[in-house]
Structures are given as structure tokens and as C-alpha cells.
Amino acid sequence: MTLTPLRRLLVLAAGVLLLAGLGAWSVLSAADRAEEENKPRPGGPAFADGKVTLDAPGRLVFRNTAAGPRRDRLVSVPVTGPAGAVRTASDVSCLRFHSAAGTGVCLQSTTVLGRPAYRAQILDAGLRTVRSYPLAGIPSRARVSPSGHLAAWTVFVKGESYGSAFFSTRTAILDTRGWRLVPNLEEFRVVLDGRPYRNSDVNFWGVTFAADDDTFYATLSTREQTYLVRGSLGARTVTALAENVECPSLSPDGTRVAYKKRVLGKTALWREHVLDLRTLKSTPLAERRSVDDQAVWLDDRTVGYALPAENRADTDDTWTVPADGTGAPRLLFEDGSAPPRPAGGTK
């Protein structure tokens, strides 16, 4: 059948209406899915918008992981009774976060020329951005030194987890006093087994700082083995101290490192331990579940860490455990990443 100009116009109009209807349906369906994903969990934490600061005594500041419009926001709760407290929510979102002495480091997702990208934001005590640095990959770890002068971050350049068969990381350290950036710890000289060491497969991750603003500890990986290394920013050197140490976290008194140790077994991949830096004696903690996190010290006696929530997808709960291997794990709060040590410490 030959189409007359009028029939062609009618067919074209019908096609345009059909495509418009499909487009509207797609947009509405995506909006419905986003709304469903952003719905707060029944029985989940309550929120109130307000001012969040990093230097308020007696407050914990951490990344909220509860589903809803405040997902990934930095929130604040009192140190006492954090589980049931109303969360004061900021407008700052982070994929990884840490703070000390009024300085914060926030690893964020963003877009550059319409493509996904990541950046490190250095925050002041009022959560205002002081400096911003592009990241080479997916955020993994972040730390600030006790003085607030140094910040470090680790990203995945290849791979998305430490459990992957193949991954590559890049770790940077920033001195905020002069904004001097070490973009890649792989530039540092490595001492392993008492000798200088070089290998193309060297990776670093999980920096933790001592109080002198020079010494740091981190994980070194090479030849399918991991090591705890002690580094010096001034000397640009790292020295291996112990094997099978990942994601170290230095205690407030500077004498011990909490870390995850790779173990064999059906129920765990990593087991939390504490290493005495003077004797290199390692103590397994009472937490027997696999912890893939860089632990935090809430005080000299207590280690905190995040675990995937049971029966709730895509969120973490924060637990604590005594640092001497005694006791039992205790739930600190649901739907949130492990918080940095609060301003003024804890009693």
C-alpha cells in the first residue's frame, strides 16, 4: 500500500507518541526505583539536619550508611548512647572519611566531563573544603595524623577489593602545613630483611600516623606477601617490621598496632589482631568474623571496626572489641562506618 503524505504524517506522529510514552515510562520507572532505594529503613536511625563540626567534644562524626537521602553523609552523635541517638546530618558526602584535631579527609565521587571520577577533599573543622585533589582510582582508605597536619589516602588503580586476585593501589600523603604532596609511596626507598628492596609489584595501603608528624606505618605488598612497614617522611624510607599485616591502625599511646591478619579457615578471611611494636608479639582479638576494614581506636583499650550488616544489604554496622584479646564484640551502632576517635578522646 502506498502511503500518502497524510498517512506518513500520521505514522510519524504515532511513532513519536510511542517513543515519548516509552521515554516517560522509563523516566518514571527510574524515579520509582531511586525513590524506593532512598526510602529510609523502617526502624532505622532518625535524622535532624544541623551543624556538624569535627572539634565538638563528646561527639562522634562518621559516614552514615543507612539507605535514604542521607546515605554517605557525615553525621554526628553523642559518644554516650550513639546507637539510639538522633543523627545530626551534614550536607557533606564521603565514600571514605577520617579526621583528627579539626582536620578531615573526605574521599568523594564526582564527575569530570560527564564521566565518573573521584577526589580527596581536605576539610576544616566546620566541614568546609580547604583543598581538593583528584584521585587515580576508587577510594579505599583514609587517615589523618593526630595533629591534623598530615593526611593520607589509598585508592584502587586496578581491582575493587583486597580480596581480589589482582589489584593495584596508590597511596598518597599530604602535609597540610605547606600543601606538600607525596603522590605515590612507591617513590620511597624500601628496606626488607635488612636490605634495600625493589620490585615492580610493590603496593602500599592503609597508612596510620604517629604523633611526631614524620613516622607512619602502612602495609607493603610484594610477591604475594604483606608486611607492616614503618616509614619516615623526612628520610623517604620504609622498613619492613613484620609479615602478614594489613591495614594497620596505631594506638593513641603509639605502642601498638591493630591490624587485620589473613587467616585460613571456612568462616574468616581476615582476623583482627593487635601487635605490640616493642616485642612484635601479636594478640588475636575476640572478634572472629572476617573484618575487611582499617580499624580505629576509640581509646587506648578499645578497637572499633565496620562489618557488613546482617540481613540488611549495602550497609555496615560498627562494632567494638577490647584491644587485649579479652571480652566479646559489642555493637556500637547500626548503619554507619567506624568513627575516628572523638575530639577530646573518650573516657
Rank of each mutant, 00 (worst) to 15 (best):
Leu264Glu: 15
Pro252Asp: 08
Arg170Met: 10
Gly58Met: 08
Leu233Gly: 08
Phe97Trp: 07
Ala268Ile: 02
Val263Gly: 03
Glu287Met: 06
Cys106Ile: 04
Arg96Lys: 14
Ser251Glu: 01
Ser90Arg: 10
Val79Asn: 00
Thr226Tyr: 10
Arg119Tyr: 05
Leu185Asp: 04
Leu150Met: 02
Leu277Arg: 04
Leu60Arg: 12
Gly23Ala: 11
Thr4Pro: 04
Ala242Cys: 05
Ser140Met: 14
Glu186Arg: 15
Lys261Arg: 13
Pro40Thr: 09
Asp335Lys: 11
Asp316Cys: 10
Leu332Glu: 00
Phe204Ile: 00
Arg87Ile: 00
Arg119Thr: 05
Gly234Val: 06
Leu332Asp: 08
Ala14Gly: 11
Asp317Pro: 02
Leu275Gly: 06
Gly114Met: 01
Asp276Ile: 01
Asp214Phe: 01
Pro78Thr: 02
Ala101Gly: 06
Leu298Gln: 10
Ala14Val: 10
Ser147Glu: 08
Ala66Tyr: 03
Arg301Tyr: 06
Ser26Gln: 15
Ser161Met: 08
Ala242Asn: 12
Ala20Trp: 11
Thr4Tyr: 07
Tyr162Cys: 09
Pro342Lys: 10
Gly254Asn: 01
Asp276Arg: 01
His149Arg: 15
Pro339Arg: 08
Arg170Lys: 14
Glu186Ser: 15
Met1Glu: 14
Thr53Lys: 12
Asp212Gly: 00
Asp175Phe: 04
Phe156Leu: 09
Ser147Asn: 13
Asp214Ala: 04
Phe167Thr: 03
Glu35His: 14
Thr4Asn: 07
Asn64Cys: 06
Thr302Leu: 08
Pro340Gln: 11
Ala48Ser: 13
Arg180Ser: 13
Ala142Ser: 13
Ser164Tyr: 12
Ser221Pro: 07
Leu19Gly: 07
Gly81Leu: 03
Ala286Ser: 08
Val79Trp: 01
Thr222Ala: 06
Ser29Tyr: 13
Thr315Pro: 02
Ala66Thr: 02
Glu35Phe: 07
Gly43Cys: 04
Leu3Ser: 09
Pro139Val: 08
Lys51Arg: 15
Ala89Thr: 05
Ala85Tyr: 00
Glu35Cys: 01
Val112Ala: 10
Leu18Arg: 10
Ser221Lys: 15
Pro284Arg: 03
Arg73Gln: 14
Gly231Glu: 06
Asp212Glu: 04
Lys51Thr: 13
Trp270Met: 07
Pro57Gly: 04
Asp253Gln: 11
Phe333Gly: 08
Val16Lys: 11
Thr320Trp: 00
Arg41Met: 11
Asp292Ser: 13
Thr176Asp: 05
Thr237Gln: 15
Ala30His: 12
Val16Asp: 08
Arg170Val: 04
Ala240Gly: 04
Ala242Tyr: 11
Leu269Ala: 14
Thr110Met: 00
Thr237Gly: 04
Ala85Ile: 02
Asp49Gln: 15
Phe333Asn: 08
Leu331Asp: 03
Ser145Asp: 06
Thr4Ser: 15
Lys266Asp: 15
Val11Phe: 14
Pro146Gln: 10
Pro45Arg: 09
Glu160Gln: 14
Ala268Phe: 04
Phe209Gln: 05
Arg289Met: 05
Ile138Cys: 08
Trp297Gln: 02
Asp32Trp: 13
Phe156Arg: 05
Asp55Met: 09
Arg119Leu: 11
Asp314Leu: 14
Leu22Ser: 12
Asp175Val: 06
Leu241Met: 12
Trp205Ile: 08
Ile173Thr: 01
